[in-house]
């Protein structure tokens, strides 16, 4: 594994974020906590992409916001280029924001409606003094060109652009201060398929050109497979499986990853009904099941799964799984490895 020797741009260590829910009540009772993030760790190398995958409520968006300290973490550390983001003072943090940027999901709410496209892109440059007032317009025009917008559109307002074009503006704004890391929080989920492909290609081209690293948050496994080098699968605030793209897509170990992969509808009518359909809903995050959090929906759950929380175990130097039975499970019922699952599913009605 060559990339493991490179210096990581981003190091995340045991990151935890708890939200207090409900009012405290008159006598301090009744307050509950949601563990939106519970001990998340990973690193991202220069010019690489890690994808954070999971369904709604798994904590992936909270992770993105906490990495940038748009939310204050409860504990843990985030280091960007070796500097601790979590402990930075307000003024140090403001300066550090030059190095880390974010692109949001909904291009209709992520751009200030009363600023022109040029103002939106120029604002971070002027703030961090990357460009002087004189040259800023040139720089904006160059960025417009880079993200595939025409210079004559510079003085238009966001509402005059289509969804895809707005996402290009948001990307230009993120790139304006030459960050080393961009958190992409579902950047293409709100777009049509054909536009989605344009934006994904743009993001990969920009990475090749500028060497920026991405934390790519998404629920779409197809997009993730296309864009990422490494993937972390989250379930109820925890990483349940993490590995390189090849490991995760060809040899998925965790039953949840396997179910997620098999649940994606394929554009191929002959694929029908090869799915693992998970029973039930995501449990209430206020009271996750004891032991393994996935145990309430897992087809293979045994007694130990309901009692003891599995820790991330190394299946290979870069592949980690949090399941008591990953060795017995094989990968996706042996679809790729030819090794059949040795653990029978205990499906009960």
């Amino acid at each position: 594994m060559i990339e493991r020797h490179e210096t990581p741009v981003l190091e995340v260590e045991d990151l935890t974020k708890h939200f207090a829910v409900g009012s405290r009540g008159l006598f301090g009772r009744g307050k509950q906590t949601v563990k939106a993030l519970d001990g998340v760790s990973f690193t991202v190398s220069k010019g690489k992409t890690i994808a954070i995958v999971g369904e709604s409520g798994c904590g992936k968006s909270t992770l993105g916001r906490t990495l940038l300290r748009l939310e204050q973490p409860t504990s843990g550390q985030v280091r960007l280029d070796g500097i601790d983001v979590t402990a930075a003072s307000a003024s140090v943090l403001r300066a550090m924001r030059r190095k880390m940027q974010i692109v949001f999901q909904d291009p209709f709410s992520s751009l200030h409606p009363k600023m022109t496209a040029a103002q939106l892109v120029a604002e971070p440059m002027l703030l961090h003094k990357v460009a002087t007032k004189k040259e800023v317009r040139h720089r904006v025009a160059a960025l417009f060109d880079l993200v595939g917008l025409a210079p004559y559109q510079m003085d238009r307002y966001p509402h005059q652009f289509s969804g895809g074009q707005r996402q290009r503006i948001a990307i230009a704004r993120a790139l304006a201060v030459e960050p080393s890391l961009i958190v992409c929080d579902e950047p293409v989920s709100a777009l049509d398929v054909s536009i989605q492909a344009q934006i994904i290609n743009l993001l990969t081209d920009l990475q090749a050109k500028l060497g920026v690293s991405y934390v790519f948050i998404s629920h779409d496994l197809g997009v993730v497979r296309y864009i990422s080098d490494e993937i972390a699968v989250m379930y109820l605030g925890r990483v349940v499986e993490q590995g390189t793209k090849r490991e995760l897509f060809s040899y998925p170990r965790h039953p949840y990853t396997q179910a997620l992969l098999s649940a994606v509808p394929r554009p191929d009518p002959s694929y029908r009904s090869q799915r693992i359909v998970l029973k039930g809903d995501l449990p209430n995050p206020l009271s996750p099941p004891p032991g393994c959090r996935f145990s309430s929906r897992c087809g293979y759950a045994r007694d130990i799964c309901h009692q003891q929380e599995p820790q991330l175990d190394a299946a290979s130097p870069s592949h980690r799984v949090a399941c008591h039975f990953w060795k017995q499970l094989g990968s996706l019922s042996g679809r790729d490895t030819g090794v059949p699952a040795t653990l029978p599913a205990n499906r009960s009605e």
Binding site: I102, P124, L127, R173
Partner: peptide, 14 residues
Amino acid sequence: AQDYVSSGRAIGLH
């Protein structure tokens, strides 16, 4: 609650 406020925060505005 709008993302653009987060976006302003993310670029480091006071």
